[in-house]
Write a protein that binds this DNA or RNA. Sequence first.
DNA 1: CCCCATGTTCGACA
DNA 2: GTGTCGAACATGGG
Length: 273
Amino acid sequence: MPELAEVYFYAHQWTPALGDKIIRLHSHPQTRLYRDCPATALEVLKNRHLTTIQTHGKQMAFGFDDDHWLVLHLGMAGKLYAGPPEWAPGKHDHLILFSDQHALVFSDYRQFGKVQIGQQKMGPPQWNDAPPPPHLSAFDFAHFSKILRASPRRCLKGLLLDQGAFPGVGNWMADEILWRARLHPSATPASLSPSQRKTLHAIVREVCLDALRVIGSDWGDPPPSWLFPHRWKKGGICPVSGKPLHYETIAGRTTCFSPALQKERRSASTKST
DNA sequence: CCCCATGTTCGACA
DNA sequence: GTGTCGAACATGGG
Protein backbone atom coordinates (compact mmCIF):
# COMPACT_ATOMS: atom_id res chain seq x y z
CA MET A 1 0.00 0.00 0.00
CA PRO A 2 2.84 2.35 -0.55
CA GLU A 3 2.33 6.06 -1.10
CA LEU A 4 4.31 8.91 0.42
CA ALA A 5 3.69 8.17 4.08
CA GLU A 6 3.67 4.39 3.78
CA VAL A 7 6.95 4.52 1.90
CA TYR A 8 8.43 6.65 4.68
CA PHE A 9 7.11 4.20 7.24
CA TYR A 10 8.57 1.15 5.48
CA ALA A 11 11.93 2.82 4.82
CA HIS A 12 12.33 3.43 8.52
CA GLN A 13 11.62 -0.17 9.40
CA TRP A 14 15.30 -0.58 8.61
CA THR A 15 16.37 2.22 10.96
CA PRO A 16 17.37 -0.19 13.77
CA ALA A 17 20.12 -1.46 11.46
CA LEU A 18 21.79 1.92 10.87
CA GLY A 19 25.50 1.35 11.44
CA ASP A 20 25.27 -2.40 10.84
CA LYS A 21 27.78 -4.09 8.55
CA ILE A 22 26.21 -6.23 5.82
CA ILE A 23 27.81 -9.66 5.88
CA ARG A 24 25.51 -11.77 3.74
CA LEU A 25 22.87 -11.37 1.03
CA HIS A 26 19.87 -13.35 -0.04
CA SER A 27 17.98 -12.71 -3.28
CA HIS A 28 15.59 -14.20 -5.78
CA PRO A 29 17.57 -13.01 -8.80
CA GLN A 30 15.17 -14.25 -11.44
CA THR A 31 12.25 -12.13 -10.28
CA ARG A 32 10.92 -9.04 -11.99
CA LEU A 33 12.33 -6.84 -9.21
CA TYR A 34 15.78 -7.22 -10.76
CA ARG A 35 14.80 -6.08 -14.26
CA ASP A 36 16.97 -2.95 -13.93
CA CYS A 37 19.78 -4.39 -11.86
CA PRO A 38 21.26 -7.90 -11.83
CA ALA A 39 21.17 -9.34 -8.34
CA THR A 40 24.90 -10.02 -8.54
CA ALA A 41 25.50 -6.24 -8.51
CA LEU A 42 24.31 -6.22 -4.91
CA GLU A 43 27.46 -8.06 -3.85
CA VAL A 44 29.10 -4.64 -3.65
CA LEU A 45 27.17 -4.02 -0.43
CA LYS A 46 28.95 -6.85 1.35
CA ASN A 47 31.19 -5.69 4.20
CA ARG A 48 29.81 -2.16 3.95
CA HIS A 49 27.84 -0.36 6.68
CA LEU A 50 24.35 1.04 6.31
CA THR A 51 24.89 4.73 6.99
CA THR A 52 21.77 6.61 5.94
CA ILE A 53 18.12 6.21 4.97
CA GLN A 54 16.30 8.64 2.68
CA THR A 55 12.98 8.74 0.86
CA HIS A 56 11.77 10.86 -2.01
CA GLY A 57 8.15 10.40 -2.98
CA LYS A 58 7.71 6.68 -3.52
CA GLN A 59 11.47 6.08 -3.84
CA MET A 60 13.64 4.87 -0.97
CA ALA A 61 17.43 5.09 -0.84
CA PHE A 62 19.78 3.33 1.56
CA GLY A 63 23.30 4.70 1.75
CA PHE A 64 26.35 2.51 2.41
CA ASP A 65 30.07 3.16 2.83
CA ASP A 66 31.87 4.82 -0.07
CA ASP A 67 28.72 6.43 -1.54
CA HIS A 68 27.05 3.20 -2.58
CA TRP A 69 23.26 3.46 -2.75
CA LEU A 70 20.58 0.82 -2.75
CA VAL A 71 17.43 2.36 -4.27
CA LEU A 72 14.15 0.52 -3.78
CA HIS A 73 10.63 1.04 -5.06
CA LEU A 74 7.79 -0.85 -3.38
CA GLY A 75 5.49 -1.02 -6.38
CA MET A 76 1.95 -1.97 -5.42
CA ALA A 77 2.52 -4.50 -2.66
CA GLY A 78 6.10 -4.15 -1.43
CA LYS A 79 7.00 -4.08 2.25
CA LEU A 80 10.19 -3.67 4.25
CA TYR A 81 10.84 -4.99 7.69
CA ALA A 82 13.70 -5.89 9.98
CA GLY A 83 13.86 -9.36 11.45
CA PRO A 84 16.33 -11.29 13.59
CA PRO A 85 19.63 -12.30 11.95
CA GLU A 86 18.57 -15.94 11.68
CA TRP A 87 15.55 -14.98 9.55
CA ALA A 88 14.54 -17.75 7.13
CA PRO A 89 13.66 -16.25 3.73
CA GLY A 90 9.98 -16.49 2.85
CA LYS A 91 8.59 -17.17 -0.60
CA HIS A 92 8.28 -13.46 -1.46
CA ASP A 93 11.35 -12.16 0.40
CA HIS A 94 13.16 -11.19 -2.79
CA LEU A 95 16.02 -9.35 -1.11
CA ILE A 96 17.49 -9.73 2.37
CA LEU A 97 20.56 -7.99 3.75
CA PHE A 98 21.98 -9.80 6.77
CA SER A 99 24.11 -8.22 9.47
CA ASP A 100 25.17 -9.72 12.78
CA GLN A 101 22.15 -8.11 14.41
CA HIS A 102 19.42 -7.96 11.75
CA ALA A 103 17.85 -9.35 8.62
CA LEU A 104 16.68 -6.47 6.42
CA VAL A 105 13.88 -7.84 4.29
CA PHE A 106 12.28 -6.55 1.08
CA SER A 107 9.15 -8.57 0.47
CA ASP A 108 6.88 -8.05 -2.55
CA TYR A 109 4.50 -10.80 -3.62
CA ARG A 110 3.41 -9.01 -6.80
CA GLN A 111 6.91 -8.10 -7.95
CA PHE A 112 5.92 -4.65 -9.18
CA GLY A 113 8.67 -3.16 -7.02
CA LYS A 114 12.17 -2.45 -8.20
CA VAL A 115 15.75 -2.81 -7.00
CA GLN A 116 18.51 -0.50 -8.25
CA ILE A 117 22.02 0.14 -7.12
CA GLY A 118 24.54 2.88 -7.82
CA GLN A 119 27.47 4.88 -6.53
CA GLN A 120 27.37 8.65 -6.33
CA LYS A 121 28.82 11.17 -3.93
CA MET A 122 26.04 13.72 -4.36
CA GLY A 123 23.39 11.39 -2.91
CA PRO A 124 21.09 8.77 -4.33
CA PRO A 125 21.52 8.35 -8.09
CA GLN A 126 19.05 10.33 -10.20
CA TRP A 127 17.73 12.30 -7.24
CA ASN A 128 19.76 15.42 -7.99
CA ASP A 129 17.15 17.35 -9.91
CA ALA A 130 14.10 15.58 -8.56
CA PRO A 131 11.14 17.92 -8.09
CA PRO A 132 10.20 18.82 -4.49
CA PRO A 133 7.54 16.65 -2.86
CA PRO A 134 4.47 18.57 -1.67
CA HIS A 135 5.21 18.37 2.05
CA LEU A 136 8.38 20.48 1.72
CA SER A 137 8.32 24.26 1.76
CA ALA A 138 9.94 24.34 -1.68
CA PHE A 139 6.58 23.21 -2.96
CA ASP A 140 5.27 26.77 -2.85
CA PHE A 141 2.43 28.33 -4.79
CA ALA A 142 4.70 29.52 -7.59
CA HIS A 143 6.00 26.00 -8.10
CA PHE A 144 2.49 24.57 -7.97
CA SER A 145 1.22 27.15 -10.47
CA LYS A 146 3.94 26.16 -12.90
CA ILE A 147 2.72 22.56 -12.77
CA LEU A 148 -0.84 23.65 -13.50
CA ARG A 149 0.25 25.87 -16.38
CA ALA A 150 2.22 23.03 -17.96
CA SER A 151 -0.87 20.79 -18.27
CA PRO A 152 -3.94 23.01 -18.54
CA ARG A 153 -6.19 20.31 -20.03
CA ARG A 154 -5.14 17.31 -18.05
CA CYS A 155 -7.65 15.92 -15.56
CA LEU A 156 -6.69 16.70 -11.97
CA LYS A 157 -6.76 13.06 -10.92
CA GLY A 158 -4.19 12.12 -13.55
CA LEU A 159 -2.06 15.15 -12.83
CA LEU A 160 -1.93 14.43 -9.09
CA LEU A 161 -0.75 10.88 -9.83
CA ASP A 162 2.14 12.19 -11.96
CA GLN A 163 5.28 11.42 -9.94
CA GLY A 164 7.21 14.11 -11.78
CA ALA A 165 4.80 16.73 -10.46
CA PHE A 166 3.56 15.37 -7.12
CA PRO A 167 6.16 12.87 -5.89
CA GLY A 168 4.63 10.43 -3.45
CA VAL A 169 0.96 11.13 -4.18
CA GLY A 170 -0.85 7.90 -5.04
CA ASN A 171 -4.40 6.79 -5.60
CA TRP A 172 -5.88 7.27 -2.16
CA MET A 173 -4.07 10.56 -1.53
CA ALA A 174 -5.20 11.99 -4.88
CA ASP A 175 -8.82 11.16 -4.04
CA GLU A 176 -8.43 12.55 -0.53
CA ILE A 177 -7.02 15.80 -1.93
CA LEU A 178 -9.77 16.32 -4.50
CA TRP A 179 -12.47 15.47 -1.99
CA ARG A 180 -11.17 17.97 0.57
CA ALA A 181 -10.79 20.59 -2.16
CA ARG A 182 -14.34 19.91 -3.41
CA LEU A 183 -13.06 19.43 -6.93
CA HIS A 184 -14.27 16.86 -9.43
CA PRO A 185 -11.51 14.39 -10.41
CA SER A 186 -12.14 15.14 -14.09
CA ALA A 187 -11.79 18.90 -13.68
CA THR A 188 -8.78 20.48 -15.39
CA PRO A 189 -6.32 23.16 -14.26
CA ALA A 190 -7.70 25.50 -16.91
CA SER A 191 -11.15 25.31 -15.33
CA LEU A 192 -9.99 26.42 -11.86
CA SER A 193 -10.59 29.87 -10.46
CA PRO A 194 -7.68 31.65 -8.73
CA SER A 195 -9.15 30.86 -5.33
CA GLN A 196 -9.61 27.20 -6.27
CA ARG A 197 -5.93 27.07 -7.21
CA LYS A 198 -4.95 28.53 -3.86
CA THR A 199 -7.15 26.03 -2.07
CA LEU A 200 -5.86 23.08 -4.05
CA HIS A 201 -2.25 24.01 -3.36
CA ALA A 202 -2.91 24.29 0.37
CA ILE A 203 -4.79 21.00 0.47
CA VAL A 204 -2.19 19.06 -1.48
CA ARG A 205 0.32 20.09 1.16
CA GLU A 206 -2.11 19.47 4.01
CA VAL A 207 -2.93 15.91 2.91
CA CYS A 208 0.76 15.02 2.50
CA LEU A 209 1.60 16.42 5.94
CA ASP A 210 -1.43 14.75 7.53
CA ALA A 211 -0.50 11.42 5.98
CA LEU A 212 3.09 11.65 7.21
CA ARG A 213 1.95 12.64 10.69
CA VAL A 214 -0.64 9.88 11.05
CA ILE A 215 0.92 7.04 9.05
CA GLY A 216 4.59 7.92 8.56
CA SER A 217 6.01 7.00 11.94
CA ASP A 218 3.32 4.87 13.58
CA TRP A 219 0.96 3.66 10.90
CA GLY A 220 -1.97 5.02 12.87
CA ASP A 221 -5.55 4.81 11.65
CA PRO A 222 -6.71 7.83 9.65
CA PRO A 223 -9.65 9.46 11.47
CA PRO A 224 -13.24 9.17 10.19
CA SER A 225 -13.19 12.85 9.22
CA TRP A 226 -10.99 11.84 6.25
CA LEU A 227 -12.36 10.27 3.10
CA PHE A 228 -9.82 7.46 3.59
CA PRO A 229 -11.71 5.16 6.00
CA HIS A 230 -14.93 5.46 4.00
CA ARG A 231 -13.65 4.75 0.53
CA TRP A 232 -12.81 1.06 0.76
CA LYS A 233 -16.08 -0.44 1.82
CA LYS A 234 -18.74 -0.97 -0.77
CA GLY A 235 -21.58 1.48 -0.30
CA GLY A 236 -19.36 4.01 1.46
CA ILE A 237 -20.99 7.21 2.68
CA CYS A 238 -19.41 10.64 2.39
CA PRO A 239 -18.82 11.82 5.98
CA VAL A 240 -19.57 15.44 4.99
CA SER A 241 -22.64 15.20 2.78
CA GLY A 242 -24.05 11.95 4.20
CA LYS A 243 -24.66 10.84 0.63
CA PRO A 244 -23.21 7.79 -1.15
CA LEU A 245 -19.70 7.91 -2.51
CA HIS A 246 -19.29 7.29 -6.21
CA TYR A 247 -16.70 5.08 -7.92
CA GLU A 248 -15.45 5.59 -11.44
CA THR A 249 -12.31 4.84 -13.43
CA ILE A 250 -10.55 8.12 -14.15
CA ALA A 251 -7.02 8.43 -15.51
CA GLY A 252 -6.91 4.65 -15.50
CA ARG A 253 -7.46 4.25 -11.76
CA THR A 254 -10.43 3.53 -9.55
CA THR A 255 -11.48 6.93 -8.28
CA CYS A 256 -13.72 7.56 -5.30
CA PHE A 257 -15.47 10.89 -4.90
CA SER A 258 -18.56 12.51 -3.45
CA PRO A 259 -20.80 13.77 -6.27
CA ALA A 260 -22.72 15.94 -3.82
CA LEU A 261 -19.56 17.93 -3.03
CA GLN A 262 -17.48 17.49 -6.17
CA LYS A 263 -19.54 18.80 -9.08
CA GLU A 264 -18.48 18.28 -12.60
CA ARG A 265 -18.21 21.65 -14.26
CA ARG A 266 -18.22 21.46 -18.00
CA SER A 267 -18.01 24.25 -20.50
CA ALA A 268 -21.17 25.02 -22.46
CA SER A 269 -19.52 23.98 -25.71
CA THR A 270 -19.17 20.34 -24.64
CA LYS A 271 -22.84 19.99 -23.73
CA SER A 272 -24.84 17.68 -25.95
CA THR A 273 -28.37 18.25 -27.37
C1' DC B 1 -14.36 -18.75 -13.71
C1' DC B 2 -15.01 -13.66 -12.74
C1' DC B 3 -13.41 -9.16 -10.80
C1' DC B 4 -10.52 -6.30 -8.01
C1' DA B 5 -6.08 -4.41 -5.91
C1' DT B 6 -2.66 2.34 -2.43
C1' DG B 7 2.14 1.41 -9.32
C1' DT B 8 4.55 2.12 -13.67
C1' DT B 9 5.26 1.72 -18.56
C1' DC B 10 4.22 1.27 -23.29
C1' DG B 11 1.62 1.33 -27.54
C1' DA B 12 -2.61 2.79 -29.82
C1' DC B 13 -5.52 6.42 -30.82
C1' DA B 14 -8.33 11.11 -31.02
C1' DG C 1 2.91 17.75 -28.91
C1' DT C 2 -1.34 16.75 -25.60
C1' DG C 3 -4.05 13.59 -23.33
C1' DT C 4 -6.69 9.39 -22.55
C1' DC C 5 -7.26 4.55 -22.40
C1' DG C 6 -6.23 -0.44 -22.08
C1' DA C 7 -3.01 -3.95 -21.51
C1' DA C 8 0.79 -5.90 -19.37
C1' DC C 9 3.49 -7.16 -15.45
C1' DA C 10 2.65 -11.42 -10.97
C1' DT C 11 0.05 -12.74 -7.15
C1' DG C 12 -3.65 -13.23 -4.00
C1' DG C 13 -8.38 -12.46 -2.17
C1' DG C 14 -13.38 -12.20 -2.56
